[in-house]
């Protein structure tokens, strides 16, 4: 075993996720879509609002409150 669970030489991590999803191709595609939506939701709702103030667009005052 290597450092990552998909270390078996067959395909990458996305392939590994795909192979571990249950059901037919269509069910897998649907689950994948749901996963992508969930990841985007978490990013937009939690991660980006946290990261955005670290960028300079917020500095509009002269006294840096």
């Amino acid at each position: 075993m290597g450092l990552v669970p998909w270390y078996d030489g067959r395909d990458g991590m996305y392939g590994w996720i795909w192979r571990h999803l249950p059901g037919s191709t269509w069910v897998r595609a649907l689950i994948s879509l749901a996963l992508v939506v969930a990841v985007v939701y978490v990013l937009f709702q939690y991660v980006f609002p946290w990261a955005e103030p670290l960028l300079p667009f917020n500095d509009v005052t002269v006294d840096n409150q």
Binding site: V40, L43, F44, F48, A51, E52, L55, F57
Partner: peptide, 14 residues
Amino acid sequence: SVIVLFVVYVLFWT
């Protein structure tokens, strides 16, 4: 992909 999404977030979604 995450960077592209972040740009979309900053430019559009905010």
